[in-house]
Design a protein around this nucleic acid. Structure first.
Lengths: 486, 486
DNA sequence: ACAGTTTCCCGTAAATGC
DNA sequence: TGCATTTACGGGAAACTG
């Protein structure tokens, strides 16, 4: 009846970070772990002392960083109304044990060591049960977590936590990332949408997911070789030489590696860990997850209201966007996330029917830098195309498919009637975003017509699909719930 | 020949902070001290060990925080070509010794303890000279420094360091701020100008200094009482009761305390420490020094080029500005620092001659927030007054007195020809600053005519002076040089 | 309630070592 | 040389304490 399963971790180690992302710990930063003893003998109160340890694998295992877990070493199990017998370790911190000479910089890169984000650690809480002649040493272990030393590693660490909890069959398997399994696309799609719904209250619809799926499910020649490399040693040398050779780079430059990529995902499609969070995407220097999470962060910080309203199409390819807008009336626009910016960007694209043809134009994407000064709806409201000696014109009239922009965004507009008494003596001023109408022929020609889509088509858009504003809105759930669904 | 004066601190303790502001140390942050032994017997190399201590006043003295000075405890004097025999302590840090229970928060506020910024500390370096039968214990002490725990205290700490080095007659007098002396206005003016010249390369001219002097040299009733309070105990109770009474606040509200303030400083004017950096200025909640330093920082960060050119009049009162602009041609403008913003602000004021009179208008001041997005010269270049269905107009034509704005600022204008290849596919965009021409009658009427100057006139401008763009450009000098000039 | 002070910690930049 | 990682610390905000 009283078994080792009676003692469990009830709050996984967690930084006090927004948006519920447990199981990532930063060195020298306080975190918290709680455990509960599920057998509730009132008599045990203050009788059971709990201590803790971290990792403690044998000395011969190399390639892991070792940490000291600092904090008040022992605490009593305490009884509370809502939790029963429980213990809470606050103000715990982790400090790396560094080998002799090591100052800052790289961890001891031994054979087989993996990157920080793929290193999993476990804390064990220990106590003794002693009652009615029965003596028992019992332990509770946390789920594996990732230890980072800088906030900049947080994003990649969260990818690991997601992947582990999505796919691991053994909750104590700290070697999970020595051979991380691939995931079915539908599972990954679920996670991606869930990330949006739990951060912003609105998930991703089928069209948005399809666009993402194309980025993740393609097979390029490089991945093909890599998968062979993992399975059979015979291609090892071949690939190695190929990689070193100029041929490899020449092929890469030509885009040959991406020919296979970009097919619409189906029921059987899978996503590799590498494609999800390890390797850079074609022609950019960041991973899918880094890009995706940057957008999630941008939406959360600056676009939450209009995202919730469903006014941000966001995940649309350029060519799909072009197809959508061309048939629409003058001044129809939509909002699309940049695919080439690491830190998250969003652009406005609109259709302009002129005597010499229809053009889809996009403004240079806005990032958190711009959006922290003007909300996107104010940019849209006041955007102007300037031309010499003409009244400036706002080209943005209807949000796709045909919603007058003030109907969509009017409720958020700032009223400058709120005259701050401190500054009454001054004229109110505000920032607006403008572009020159025809300042540079190069730009216009690139932004119009079709030539610029050639490369996109080659890599991303072998078919044209027709997005519909469907609803695919996940219930918000924390990681615990998400894990339990499995 | 070898005396205790042979061993001196050659680099005062200093954070690696920009703009040369030594003698401020932040707890838990590394700093550096070096000392030199001026007697150069080659034979002493590696023979003299240097150690250090901090403060070490007797236990009965209360009201000071106590610190531990951490770092490698002993170092040899080393010989180098350029410094001779010297020792350098790097990676020193300070940690407060906190009395038992103290977590964060206030220091032990004992009787007579002063604020952190007025607490001075000293580090002593100690060594033994032993040569040819002579034995001598010798010490070198740093100048008194201020210990802060957060960067936000830096500004106030620097005021202390300036005041001490301006006025102290004893370089080891850590009790200096128990009765800080007043300074002659001309000395203070010198410091203020020097602060600008050493940070930006251009000091303050006579008109700018006069405007500042009026803020510092006035005597209001409150200061009058305070000075009596310091000298004779007899007014203690009277003032205390007065301060508590509603009468005090009623008087304060009515501005009675400020009636005496704002006279033009002369040769005999003095500035008290309190007026300089302790008490808030009339009708705002920050001190003169906080205000002044915020502007200095703003200039350094965002206005350095146009400041160096002498295009920022800056320190002008509203009424002086009005007098200057009214007689000028339509569209004449000048740049003036806000007197009411704690964090530093700069406004543009221009004259507008209309059929119903001449108006001087000012735009809501720009702060580092705005200026880090658009440089001021770009705001000036593209500023627009919007009016329905009209071509927007830029009211800024001539920098006072009559320099066409493009002549003044043209060399800094950004050329948007630099088309970033990454974003060729997008339309370039930029921010511009706009105001509504007649959006709110209240604002316009307040910004025009004379009524709004009544309160200013009462407090700040009993006379009208006529600024001239003189040159008052200090040589840049670091604190060491400045101290030595005394 | 408040103000002075310290602690906490993100995010950027620099340092470090492979 | 570049990359992965850690350290350093400014600046905003929270926590703490009389």
């Amino acid at each position: 009846m009283v078994s080792s399963r009676s003692f469990v971790v009830s709050k996984q180690p967690s930084l006090p970070y927004p948006c519920k992302r447990p199981l990532i710990i930063k060195t020298s930063t306080q975190f918290l772990v709680t455990a509960r003893f599920l057998v509730n003998f009132q008599e045990l109160r203050h009788r059971m002392k709990v201590s803790f340890k971290i990792d403690k694998y044998p000395a011969e295992i190399k390639g892991y960083r070792r940490f000291n877990l600092l904090g008040s070493q022992e605490k009593d199990l305490e009884y509370t109304q809502c939790d029963g017998l429980a213990v809470e370790f606050k103000h715990l911190t982790l400090k790396e044990q560094r080998a002799g000479g090591g100052g800052k910089g790289s961890k001891g890169v031994n054979e087989g060591s993996r990157s920080v984000q793929e290193e999993l650690h476990i804390i064990t809480l220990m106590t003794q049960f002693s009652y009615d002649g029965v003596e028992l040493n019992i332990e509770a272990t946390t789920l594996p977590f990732v230890v980072i030393s800088n906030q900049s590693q947080f994003v990649r660490a969260w990818a690991s936590i997601l992947w582990f909890n999505l796919l691991s069959t053994d909750p104590k398997d700290v070697a999970f990332f020595s051979k991380p399994p691939a995931a079915k696309w539908i599972l990954v799609a679920d996670v991606l949408s869930w990330q949006f719904s739990c951060c912003t209250g609105r998930g991703l619809n089928a069209d948005q997911l399809q666009m993402l799926g194309k980025k993740l499910c393609g097979t390029d020649i490089l991945s093909f070789f890599n998968s062979i490399y993992n399975d059979a040693g015979i291609f090892h040398i071949v690939l190695f030489l190929l990689k070193l050779s100029k041929v490899y780079f020449a092929l890469k430059k030509l885009g040959v590696f991406f020919l296979f990529q970009g097919s619409v995902p189906n029921q059987d499609s899978t996503v590799t860990w590498s494609k999800f969070a390890k390797e850079s995407m074609p022609r950019v220097s960041f991973t899918f997850w880094e890009w995706f999470d940057a957008i999630l962060t941008l939406v959360k910080a600056h676009l939450e209201n209009i995202w919730k309203d469903g006014y941000v199409m966001g995940f649309v390819s350029r060519s799909a966007e072009d197809a959508l807008l061309r048939t629409r009336q003058q001044g129809t626009f939509l909002l699309r996330f940049s695919e080439s910016m690491r830190d998250g960007g969003i652009t406005i694209s609109w259709v302009d029917h002129e005597s010499d043809g229809s053009f889809v134009r996009s403004v240079e994407p806005f990032t958190k830098k711009e959006l922290s000064n003007i909300p996107l709806y104010e940019i849209i409201r006041n955007y102007q195309l300037l031309a010499e000696e003409n009244i400036p014109e706002n080209p943005l009239k209807f949000l796709y498919p045909n919603i007058p922009k003030d109907d969509a965004f009017g409720k958020y507009y700032e009223h400058n009637s709120e005259v701050n008494s401190e500054y009454q003596k001054y004229m109110k001023r505000r920032l607006i975003m403008v572009s020159e109408r025809n300042n540079d022929e190069t730009q216009s020609s690139i932004a119009s017509g079709t030539p610029q889509y050639i490369s996109d088509t080659l890599s991303n858009d072998n078919d044209i699909f027709s997005p519909v504003h469907g609803e695919y809105c996940h219930d918000a759930a924390d990681l615990g719930n998400f894990i339990n669904r499995k």
